[in-house]
Design a protein around this nucleic acid. Structure first.
Lengths: 116, 116
DNA sequence: TAAGTAAGTATCCTAAAGGGTACTGTTAGA
DNA sequence: TCTAACAGTACCCTTTAGGATACTTACTTA
């Protein structure tokens, strides 16, 4: 039974998940955590399988929630930079913990003998 | 730029998300983290909006991943108990961190003056 | 003159997740 | 004799997320 938990009915895990879930959102955030600022096409090159449409959509949603900021330079051809906000950086420990858990999960599945 | 991160292309965040995402999975896990063991209908009563079909589905998926174990007692009417596994309990810190982040996110949205 | 670049939109389509409702079998209790 | 309890399944339908492809604009370089 252990250490007391949050009341499930008041829990905001779903709120957090609603914001970081999206086929490409964690990937985008991780790239921006590494590089801090990236242009649209630079991101696209780093995530080869994403389409332009999807990259735009996911970035717009991340911007909407304040995790990423978008700066347009009125030049031609266009220049648009995406930067992770200080607020977005607060997700880093969570992403890191999920990565570790996911890695352990994969290892566990590959050696089904593990009991625990 | 800060403290070095996981290489985005090797990151297992998506693996972890694939397992905890599901409309009712966090809620179910939280209830089981509080109570440790619950019968099917007890869970259903705790989550009034879920349908039987959905509860069954989500539980089966959690069982599949080893987060929850299912014990059937061959009595009538049926008795089936769902228990969180030690492995499932390892998600607690992550769920807790997401809850805290989600709560902060809601507060932040309600006071749009906050700059940071 | 033609092609390339950057950062997108517009349109249409598919797949996956989620949900409603009705049904099952066996027993205890009213 | 009828109803309720428990733990589901079967069947079908709607919503949402994700994706393929083509198009746009304005400028530069070959």
């Amino acid at each position: 039974m252990r250490r007391l938990m949050i009341k499930p009915e008041l829990c905001k895990v779903d709120t957090a998940l609603g914001i970081i879930v999206g086929k490409w959102k964690p990937t985008i955030l991780l790239h921006l955590l590494v590089e801090d600022t990236l242009r649209f096409n630079a991101l696209k090159r780093k995530i080869p399988d994403i389409t332009q449409r999807m990259l735009t959509k996911q970035l717009r949603e991340l911007e909407e929630e304040g995790l990423v900021s978008r700066t347009v330079y009125p030049v031609v051809p266009p220049k648009v930079e995406y930067t992770i906000t200080p607020y977005g950086k607060k997700l880093e420990p969570i992403l890191h913990a999920m990565h570790e858990w996911g890695k352990a999960h994969i290892e566990r599945k590959s050696q089904p003998s593990t009991e625990e």
